[in-house]
């Protein structure tokens, strides 16, 4: 196989491998934002989820308990966000930043003892077992959480379109006064949306510590929780587009390592910056002072 195919293969595999956490965080954020709240604390949920999953997996011996525990912790953080951000005279962004710091703070504080020991990790499904090539085998080794994320994306799209709760969430996010007139409790709807959203972000965190890279370190996230917020804008608040955007960001992340693996050393660190550059480009393209964004929930972070 020549190096072009090697690089392409590696990038595609990287899209799946690196895109999974983006997928969970962005789906969670998409759900939260659809209800009219913007939660920047997703980064905190991601880190707290990563730490919790690793610790619980280490103590219980089962990585799946870790994933569940991470989800629980994420939902608690989401509850905290929902409560704080719906108090009078607070602001989503400020509360989000506070929770980002809080979430990472508790993760670092309780996570110190788990940096050294190794916990049981999530298994990969060897879809490339038919091939002799170790590269193909490695590329097609896919974490079950990715498929779970894939299902979640399609489920969420259906949920928002065709269920009572989905319609209520959209009403709350787009026109709170209409939702109130329909007797929908904004508080309840937004609390559940924030909890579910934060829980999903924490599952994304468990993927980081339990599959790829597969260890607990404080630098594990690299701001992925924040990038996922940009990604939701890029995806126009559409869960299926979140999937596409996550894969794109994941792919961008793996350009550097893939090129290095193929023996191309030039600009390694520059290539590693590509997801961040992509974030900036998305922001510049989609933000305009003159027009509001199509697809954006009408009441997003308006404090209404």
């Amino acid at each position: 196989m020549d190096s072009f195919w090697l690089v392409t293969m590696a990038i595609l595999a990287g899209a799946v491998r690196g895109g999974t956490p983006f997928l969970f965080v962005s789906l969670g954020e998409c759900l939260t934002e659809k209800s009219g709240k913007i939660n920047l604390g997703q980064e905190g949920s991601l880190l707290a989820g990563a730490m919790t999953a690793y610790a619980v997996s280490y103590h219980s011996g089962s990585p799946w308990y870790g994933v569940l525990a991470a989800m629980g912790v994420g939902m608690l953080l989401g509850l905290l966000f929902a409560w704080l951000s719906q108090l009078p005279r607070t602001n989503d962004i400020a509360v989000g930043i506070a929770l980002m710091l809080f979430g990472s703070g508790i993760a670092f504080f309780f996570g110190k003892p788990y940096i050294q020991p190794s916990a049981p990790l999530l298994p990969g499904i060897p879809l490339g077992a038919w091939s002799d090539s170790t590269q193909i085998q490695a590329a097609l080794r896919i974490c079950p959480l990715f498929f779970l994320g894939l299902l979640t994306a399609y489920f969420l799209a259906w949920f928002l379109r065709s269920t009572r709760w989905g319609l209520q969430i959209r009403a709350a996010g787009d026109q709170p006064s209409a939702a109130r007139a329909l007797g929908i409790s904004l508080k309840a709807v937004r609390t559940w949306a924030a909890m579910a959203g934060s829980g999903l972000a924490a599952v994304g965190g468990s993927y980081l510590s339990l599959y790829y890279p597969g260890a607990w370190t404080e630098a594990i996230s690299g701001g992925q929780g924040l990038m996922a917020v940009a990604l939701v804008i890029f995806a126009r608040w559409d869960p299926k587009m979140c999937l596409v955007a996550s894969l794109l960001f994941g792919g961008a992340q793996s350009v550097g390592p893939a090129l290095q693996a193929a023996g191309i050393q030039t600009g390694y660190y520059l290539w590693n910056a590509s997801p961040y550059v992509l974030t900036l480009i998305v922001m510049v393209i989609t933000c305009s002072t003159k027009k509001s964004l199509a697809g954006a929930p009408g009441a997003l972070a308006t404090g209404e």
Partner: peptide
């Protein structure tokens, strides 16, 4: 009290 991003059908059902 219509939700702007929803269709008339969706609004009525909601």
């Amino acid at each position: 009290t219509l939700v702007p991003s929803m269709t008339v059908t969706e609004n009525l059902v909601l």
